[in-house]
Every structure is written in C-alpha cells, then in structure tokens.
C-alpha cells in the first residue's frame, strides 16, 4: 500500500543523505521525496511516499525515528490529509493544437508560464492522479519535457505535527 510519510528533521548538513542512505541500505522503496526548510527553528520537513505492506512501513517509520537528527515522523495515510504536487510541462503546440493545449490547461485549472510560437509551458497543481490525468491528455499532443516536485502533504484539522509547532 502507498503511504505518505512526513518527517521533521534538523536542518543540518547530511540529513538528506542519512534518510536516502537508510532507504537504499535497507532496500525500502521511495516513490517520491521532497525536502525544504520550514519555520525558523532550523528544521526541514521531508515528505516521502513509499509503497510497502504494514510491517515494512512500520519498520520505515521506526528506522527514520532512529536517525539522530529526525525530530518527528508521521504516517499521514493513517488519517485524513491533503496531498499536493506541482508539475511543469512543456508541450509542443503549433497552429490548431494551440487551442487544444489551452483547453486542457483550463480543464485542469493550470496556468501557462511560458509561450513560444510552437510550444507552451504549463504549471499544474493537484494530487498525483490529477497530474497523471492531465499528462495523459497532453502526451498525444507532444510533451517535450516535464518535471514534477513529488508529493507534499499535511494532515487535515487544526492540529500540527507536534504540539508546540
């Protein structure tokens, strides 16, 4: 099963390689991983998506907690949560195709970030399924290149990951 795991870490050199190294050394799967500093207390938040059965996910969470710079780990999949991902996609678009690309962009509430006589760059935000669906429609028109951020996610409700945050 797919799990979205949120990891609050000390924002210090090498912390990402500790997390990535753990997954590599123990053969855990990473579908996506995002990391950036958050707040002003010298912390970063990692969101990672992994696929595994209950025992594997339990091991992943325990192993992450064991890393010294890891402050807190939460499996967001256990409760209600919101997931978002951002995709930039460059589509070939000439003549009559241009309107089609813009229509698809509109359906997915995406924005055009750049345009040339024969291409558009589109920004799409949403959960992974939405991005996949959008991409399915754009592919036949000629996708030149694309990039995705990977999932970020927060739990629903008025509570933070840890009480005093």
């Amino acid at each position: 099963m797919r799990h979205v795991i949120s990891v609050l870490v000390e924002n210090e050199a090498g912390v990402l390689s500790r997390v990535a190294g753990l997954f590599a050394a123990r053969g855990f799967n990473i579908e996506s991983l995002t990391v950036a500093p958050v707040g002003d207390e010298g912390t970063s938040r990692i969101t990672l998506v992994s696929i595994g059965d209950k025992e594997i996910i339990e091991q992943i969470i325990k192993q992450l907690n064991k890393l010294i710079p890891v402050i807190h780990v939460v499996d967001l999949t256990e409760g209600a949560h919101v997931e978002r991902e951002l995709m930039l996609v460059k589509v070939a678009a000439e003549r009559e195709v241009r309107a089609e690309v813009l229509r698809i962009a509109d359906i997915f509430r995406s924005r055009v970030l750049d345009a040339t006589p024969n291409s558009f760059m589109i920004e799409v935000t949403g959960d992974s399924n939405k991005l996949d669906a959008c991409l399915e429609l754009l592919k036949p028109l000629g996708v030149i290149e694309l990039v995705r951020t990977g999932q970020v996610a927060l739990s629903r409700g008025n509570r933070g990951m840890i009480k005093n945050q």
Partner: peptide, 11 residues
C-alpha cells in the same frame, strides 16, 4: 530499547 528491533525479523 531499540524499537526497530521489535517485529523486524519475528512478529
């Protein structure tokens, strides 16, 4: 003392 040791090999 190490939670990762628990249910790692044997449930």
């Amino acid at each position: 003392i190490d939670p990762t040791s628990i249910s790692k090999n044997v449930k």
